[in-house]
Design a binder for these strands. Structure first.
Length: 874
RNA sequence: GCGGACGUGGCGGAACUGGUAGACGCAAGGGACUUAAAAUCCCUCGAUGGCAACGUCGUGCGGGUUCGAUUCCCGCCGUCCGCACCA
């Protein structure tokens, strides 16, 4: 028996070296066993790992180690999402080159990650800023161009005036840049876009099959893609009122059934018709300018009134040439959605109703709720958007909404004006193409050349990669690539004439849209992937990361995989078969008297009455314990993984990360909690050593008979094995840990029994310890290796197979059934597992507590749920 | 505004498919060991009544379905998240 405390500081580096020396986590692509690809979202090399990383990578490592023990060929790689703005900011602030800054950060973060004891295959490591990586990204860009999946277009873009770059729609949060927080401006620019909209329907439909994704994420993507079914309707314009050359106005509507309730048309401020009308109308031009100036920032949408300006143009109702409708420019119509024009049916749309009430245009209800008399159905200030029958709608009267939609579609599709039908059914998507041009230096160069003669010319394959120059300066704002004196000046690959390189780089989300595929064969210098290897190792079976990427990264990756398939780089559509979004790591905040925050390391907390009291370590002043919030530098409530691992060891940190909260919810990091985990580490160490001591006196072969005590501990061991195995598959780590602790408690009780254990007991204790160690090995691998040695097991536990369950130990000969009378628990009966109902009923009715509860009333019914419960109804 | 999730002890949370609510941990209280501390071990720990056996209430609130509801249905209240002038 040992009384020595387990010393994580000594054992952890030792085992890490051993794993490394034997390269046991290096994955072979030609392994014949079934593959299992587990991946955590790769980190941005900011310089230090934080607790969020610790949580993310611990979860992934548990899965990896568990699947490895299941006999799978596990792929568990790591790399670096290394392009991005912070490297340029560092260059500006600290005068270090982005490249040097990035690779230094990678080196120190890698060192930190290695202290966590993660079972990673480091031989596949790469950074997205390696030319050997982005070379292939450039190749795929060119392939996408050829396939019509990458195009250059003039489009309205989101311009971040602080970061001085374009942002994708997904990167604009509440009208502000997701990184800088600056109010985003609208500009017209030439942009490279990926044609993600070509896959709108497919990306939507395929969500149904992603059954191992969180519903929440699938729903968010569904909403983001935003499919709506409706009609495109071409309204003719009254020639006398229309500006020169304009003859019609096209609108998208999801409610063609309400056409007879139309009271006005509204077009966006930047709609061509509005601009045409403004030419001869200064007041209108002023209104348009004002509306554009307001933009669509959040505050304006919330506060601004619905405003319109009558252009004087009159549209003609598609079903009645004598019926004209005024056309307004309105501040609530977006050029980006649909056709940038609507028809307003105020009776059945609240926004349209507000608009007509303001401008006195009136309303006519055309859908009447069932059971309401149409004569008395009047709309004043609340629009009706429910079901009903058509009224005031000529040939539609009496129809349901669906029938009316179908009838309108039939008639408008059949009516030809010019050489096209007046209306057509149309599915509209909210999703827009992915603008990838960024006016930044530290990103993947877009491999095209602009020639005055030939136009846009792709860089020839053999000239790839287009490498970023390193001699750049950041002494003025904007794109350092563009400022470079020579880099962009090249000869046109086609005509040899004077030409310029594209100086925009790709959105860094492009880098992370295919790294998972590159991990399958990062050694291939000639192509992004080796398709048959990628097809064998993909998809990622379990992807783990933060919910903040639910739309951006995950949607882009789903698109990119399809685009790679279309260009022959991979043979599947969906990159991630299983997706898990983990919660954040949160911590209490501490506020000093002067209002500034104190860090957890600066304070001491002691119990104080019902609560706790915090004081500063240096001067003893009282600190207010504040709200629990996401760890952040500004709130100073971060905890440094290095400190935790240095003090308690990686195993303790890993265990606590998994213990308290369900993995998809936030976990509160607390000093007490870590201490609890640390206590458990020591407790396991003692138990295993004690069990190993008994194991020495145990018979060499499995006894044929076990006494009740030995049987009980064996049942506890195999029961825990069963529960942990099923819960770990479901990623219910907190539940797994509870079962492991429960089992450890049972083992502790068995070990505490006085006297020398019998041979069968000694054998059972040793078996229990072996199973216990294997159960916690995925979470605490270093401790497990050390215990494995103590138990005299051969090889490393990291390479050992998951223990076999003995199923007969999971079933009891007798079971204890709770007994209810009228739904209230009144007692228990112990019966044989295969006891028949009459037998159980007799036992139940014999209970005194049941007789009392029945109080002489006759038994009406006895419900027996096999193996579960008995309920007596009196 | 639209969509979604959630609401269980002092706290984090557990509970299979409708079947013993509160597993496991944290905190707290009491005790043992110790000169003392640390470490460790034992006991208590939803509320309420009772010396106790035990009873009553209890999973946000109000209803419903059911032999039985934390779980299913309806209506509220609250919290969190996503989207948002989407035609």
């Amino acid at each position: 028996m040992t009384s020595e405390r387990y010393n994580a500081r000594e054992t952890e580096p030792r085992w890490q070296r051993q794993w490394d020396d034997k390269a046991i986590f290096a994955t072979k692509n030609d392994d014949v066993r079934p593959k299992y690809y587990v991946l955590e979202m790769f980190p941005y090399p900011s310089g230090r790992i934080h607790m969020g990383h610790v949580r993310n990578y611990t979860m992934g490592d548990v899965v990896a180690r568990f699947q490895r023990a299941q006999g799978k060929n596990v792929l568990h790689p790591m790399g670096w999402d290394a392009f991005g703005l912070p490297a340029e900011n560092a260059a500006i602030e600290r005068k270090v080159a982005p490249k040097a800054w990035t690779y230094d950060n990678i080196a120190s973060m890698k060192k930190q990650l290695q202290t966590m004891g993660l079972s990673l295959d480091w031989s596949r490591e790469f950074a997205t800023c390696d030319p050997s990586y982005y070379k292939h990204q450039q190749k795929m860009f060119l392939d996408f161009m050829k396939a019509g999946l990458a195009e250059r277009e003039q489009r309205k873009i989101n311009w971040d005036p602080v970061d001085m770059t374009v942002l994708a729609n997904e990167q604009v949060i509440d009208g502000r840049g997701w990184r800088s927080g600056a109010v985003v401006e609208q500009r017209e620019m030439n942009q490279w876009v990926f044609k993600i909209t070509k896959y709108s329907q497919e990306l939507l439909d395929a969500l149904d099959n992603l059954d191992r994704w969180p519903d929440k994420v699938r729903l968010m993507q569904r909403n983001w893609i935003g499919r709506s079914e409706g009609m495109l309707v071409r309204f003719a314009l009254d020639a006398a009122t229309a500006p020169n050359g304009e003859s019609e106005l096209k609108v998208f509507t999801t409610r063609p059934d309400t056409l007879f309730g139309a009271k006005f048309m509204a077009i966006a401020a930047d709609h061509p018709l509005a601009l045409a009308a403004a030419v001869k109308n200064p007041e209108l031009a002023a209104f348009i300018a004002e509306t554009k100036r307001q933009g669509t920032a959040q505050e304006i949408i919330d506060t601004a009134e619905k405003q319109g300006f009558d252009t004087g143009i009159r549209a003609i109702h598609p079903f009645d040439p004598t019926w004209t409708i005024p056309v307004y420019v309105a501040n609530f119509v977006l050029m980006e959605y649909g056709t940038g024009a609507i028809f307003g049916c105020p009776a059945h749309d609240q926004r349209d109703l507000d608009f007509v009430n303001k401008y006195g245009l009136g309303n006519t209800p055309v859908v009447c709720p069932e059971g309401q008399d149409p004569a008395t159905f009047i709309i004043t200030d609340t629009a009706y958007d429910g079901d009903g029958r058509m009224i005031n709608s000529r040939f539609l009267d009496g129809m349901t909404i669906e029938q009316a939609k179908a009838e309108v579609a039939k008639r408008l599709e059949g009516e030809i004006r010019g050489n096209a039908p007046v209306g057509e059914r149309k599915v509209n998507f909210r999703l827009r193409d992915w603008g990838i041009s960024r006016q930044r230096y530290w990103g993947c160069p877009i491999p095209v050349i602009h020639c005055e003669v030939c136009g846009v010319v792709p860089v020839p394959d053999k000239a790839l990669p287009v490498v970023l120059p390193e001699d750049v300066t950041f002494d003025r704002p904007g794109n350092a690539l563009d400022h470079h004196p020579t880099w962009k000046h090249v000869a046109c690959p086609q005509c040899g004439g004077k030409a310029q390189r594209e100086t925009d780089t790709m959105d860094t989300f492009v880098d992370s849209s295919w790294y998972f595929a590159r991990f399958t064969d990062p050694w291939n210098e000639n192509a992004p992937t080796t398709p048959d290897v990628a097809n064998r190792m993909m998809p990622v079976d379990q992807y783990i990361g933060g919910v903040e990427h639910a739309i951006l990264h995950l949607l882009y990756s789903r698109f990119f995989t399809r685009a790679m398939k279309a260009t022959g780089h991979i043979g599947l559509d969906e990159p991630f078969a299983g997706m898990f979004t983990q919660g954040m790591v949160v911590h209490e905040t501490y506020r000093k008297a002067d209002g500034t925050f104190a860090s957890p390391a600066e304070i001491s907390i002691v119990p104080d009455g019902d609560g706790r009291r915090a004081t500063m370590l240096d001067d003893g002043s009282v600190v207010e314990i504040g709200a629990i919030e996401k760890m952040s530098k500004s709130k100073r409530n971060t905890v440094d993984p290095d400190d935790i691992i240095g003090t308690y060891g990686a195993d303790t940190a890993r265990w606590f990360m998994l213990s308290d909260s369900p993995p998809d919810r936030d976990v509160i990091w607390s000093e007490e909690g870590v201490k609890g985990a640390s206590r458990f580490v020591q407790r396991l160490w003692r138990q295993v050593n004690e069990s190993a001591e008994h194991g020495k006196s145990a018979p060499a072969s499995r006894p044929t008979e076990f006494g009740p005590g030995a049987l009980a501990i064996r049942k506890a061991a195999h029961g825990a094995l069963h529960k942990v195995s099923t819960e770990i598959e479901k990623l219910h780590f907190n539940v797994c840990l509870a079962h492991i602790r429960e089992f450890s408690n049972a083992l502790g009780e068995a070990l505490a029994r006085p006297g020398t254990p019998s041979p069968d007991m000694a054998w059972a204790l040793n078996e229990a310890a072996v199973i216990l160690v294997q159960l916690f090995a995925p979470m605490m691998p270093h401790l497990a290796e050390e215990c494995w040695t103590v138990l005299g097991q051969s090889g490393m536990i990291s390479e050992a197979s998951w223990p076999q369950i003995e199923p007969n130990l999971l079933v009891e000969d007798t079971i204890t059934l709770p007994v209810q009378v009228n739904g209230k628990k009144r007692g228990e009966v112990v019966v044989a597992r295969d006891a028949q109902n009459p037998e159980i009923e007799a036992a139940v009715l014999a209970l005194d507590t049941v007789k009392q509860a029945l109080d002489g009333k006759p038994v009406r019914k006895i419900i027996i749920v096999p193996q579960r419960i008995v309920n007596v109804v009196g």
